[in-house]
Structure formats: C-alpha cells, structure tokens
Write a protein that binds this DNA or RNA. Sequence first.
DNA 1: CTCGTGATTGACT
DNA 2: GTCAATCACGAGC
Length: 182
Amino acid sequence: MKLLGTILVRQMGRLVLSGVIVEVEAYLGEIDPASHAYRGLTKRNAVMYGEPGHAYVYFTYGFHHCLNITTEKVGKAGAVLIRALQPREGIDRMKKNRGVNKLESLTDGPGKLTKALRIDRALNGEDLVASKKLYLVRGSGARINVGRSARIGIKVGLEHRWRYFIKGNPYISKTKPRSENP
DNA sequence: CTCGTGATTGACT
DNA sequence: GTCAATCACGAGC
C-alpha cells in the first residue's frame, strides 16, 4: 500500500499536527461485505463514490470518528481506513487532545488518531490534495517492511487480508483481528 | 499480563 | 428497533 510511510498533516491556523501513516486497511464496495458501500450508495458513504484522494470521515459506536481516504474513480466505491499514525509534529498538543501521556498510545487506533488530530465530520469530503486543513505529504521514500493480515473489528469479509502495516513499528494498533467465530 | 464489557450517537432496515 | 471499520477500564489470572 503506497500510503504507508506517507505523512498526514492536520493544520489549524498556526497549529500543525502530523504523523506518519503506519497502518491501513482497504475497503472496496460491492464485492466487500465489510464495506459501508456493500449495499450500495447511501447518504453516509456518498464520499466513497466520489473522487479519489478525498477524506471519508464517519462516526461510529457513539464515540469515535474514523478517517478514510478514497481511492477509486468517481462512481466506484473504495477507500482506505487509516488505522494508525506515528506522531511527528505537535505531539504535546496531541497528548492534550487525547488526555494521555504515552507516546505509543497516542495514535495507535482509528478512533484515537482522529481524536488526537481533531478530525470530525466537518472534514468529511475534504480534498486531501487541495486542502489546507488536512492533507498528505509524500514520505521520505525510505524502504519499509510491509506486513499484512486480516482486517480488524469486522465480522464479515475476513477472507480478504487487506490490512497493511509497517512491520515492527511500535505505533501500529495492538488489537487483533477476530479469527474465530463465537 | 489478558479478557470481558459498558458507553452512546447516528444511520440503516 | 438494531447494530456498528472502537476505546477505556476493571476483574481475574
């Protein structure tokens, strides 16, 4: 996944928060039962059908926001869920936003990183190329060791191993995919 | 350390 | 009415 190693920047006035993307999951519409777009276009997932390179932000579990980046052409649903970041700039501010002091648990989960970076549905549909509030910066290009596994937190579509992460990075999420069935 | 569970809103059936 | 791409915390090992 090309997004691994890319830097995600959140800018609020003079304040800059950023981190390196270290863990992602791919979701495709139609063929993917775990995707929000599996049952077709709805109000919530409309952004997934729009242009690639935009932010798809949704609210879940009554507490958390999750950040996705759309990947497919207009009319085709597809997005990549950003699951974890390695904090880079504005770390003190992120700690404040999260109310924690440990660097490793600052952004090692999809709900955590949106809270740390103050991402909410106001940023849904944001153009990550043109935006000044939330955008991507090409990484260093350093060689990275990519691992792969089943996706986390879903009950269906486990046959697709579409979770990608930087192997050995301490900031990836610790939760494991549910492999068995209750 | 690992495991289980409660919290709480919005969108879909 | 039901359920969700999650997290924090407390109990038990």
